[in-house]
Computed example of a mutant assay.
Amino acid sequence: MDEPFWKTKPLAAMSAAEWEALCDGCGKCCLAKLEDEDTGEIHWTSVACRLFDAGLCRCTDYANRLERVPDCVRLTPDNVATIAWLPATCAYRLVAEGRDLPAWHPLVSGRADSVHEAGVSIRGRVTAFEEECDEPEAYVAHILPEEP
């Protein structure tokens, strides 16, 4: 039996469809994160991007997100290893580190909802959207005790 593509191909060799399939749909990338200027520590919040659909756990305008949200980050094979805030569960990070995907990942389970059923996604955990946080201090009230 052939090995799955994420076990045999480096990120840079993946097709566009394979690259997109690696995303587990957790939505963690769409949460605001605060970085401590002194320590570099990342603090996760439960504040979602204005384009995030909290019920579907998806971007409502994925194709145009980079134009509509100036601080949205496009993940690439070149930058996934350098982005400190990528969650420990992120498939791009796992593959870049030479690790396998967890059993709940949709590519492994064969079901898109497995990420939500495993409690890995942010579905049901968004407490605000960025447009509701007009001052930087407003995000502080939504800091999570740990990475979601």
Rank of each mutant, 00 (worst) to 15 (best):
Y139T: 08
D113K: 10
K9M: 04
P70A: 12
S114F: 07
P4A: 11
D61F: 09
V120H: 03
K33Q: 09
F5K: 01
P4Y: 00
A141C: 05
L107I: 01
T60I: 01
P10R: 15
D24T: 03
V80C: 06
P10L: 08
T127W: 14
E132I: 12
S15I: 04
A88H: 09
R65F: 03
E147P: 14
G25A: 05
W85E: 15
W44M: 07
I83N: 02
T8N: 04
K33N: 13
L101Q: 11
E130D: 14
L34Y: 11
P102G: 04
V73W: 07
T89C: 13
A81P: 11
D2I: 08
R74A: 08
R74V: 11
P106D: 02
S121W: 04
T39L: 00
L51A: 06
R125T: 08
G124S: 09
I42L: 08
A91R: 07
A128N: 07
D78G: 02
A91I: 00
L56Q: 14
R50W: 00
F5G: 01
V47W: 05
G98T: 01
T60D: 12
C72A: 12
G124C: 01
E67R: 15
G119R: 09
T89R: 09
L86T: 11
R99P: 06
I143A: 09
P136A: 08
A96K: 07
D36W: 02
R123P: 10
C72Y: 03
N79I: 00
T89K: 14
A63D: 15
E67C: 01
D38I: 04
D100A: 13
P87G: 08
C30V: 00
D113V: 09
L144N: 08
E130K: 03
D24P: 04
F52W: 14
G98L: 01
W6P: 10
P145W: 04
T89W: 08
L94T: 04
A91W: 00
V126K: 02
K28M: 07
E135H: 13
I42Q: 07
T8I: 05
I122M: 05
C26F: 01
I122D: 13
E20M: 00
P106K: 02
